[in-house]
Amino acid sequence: MLHTVNKSPFQKNSFDTSLRLSRKGSDILLIEDAVYAALKDSAIAKTVKQAVTTHSIYVLEPDLMARGLQPARLIKGIQIVGYEGFVELAVKNDKVQSWL
């Protein structure tokens, strides 16, 4: 199952909820302001590092770039995809839940 999150984790709890209400092994794609969750050294980096071990976490490249976040600043294990990759994730998973 694919879960998308589009809120900054510093503003709303959508990322936390996506972790709480997804099964282990699910895909989570961070889009829009949720890409900030991928930053290393942030106040929530520990949670995200832990999540990388239980879920496959992806981040949307155009939204990273727009916000000036270089790949080197991301937590290890988070994978970068474009809109094509977003579509592929939606195809690969049999259902999609958007945590808004």
């Binding site: 997804s22 099964r23 259902k95 958007s98």
Partner: peptide
């Protein structure tokens, strides 16, 4: 609880928020 709900969500076909 969260775990039960995660299982129920995983069984759905269409999710609207």
């Amino acid at each position: 609880d969260s775990e039960q709900l995660a299982d129920i969500i995983a069984e759905q076909d269409v999710l609207l928020n």
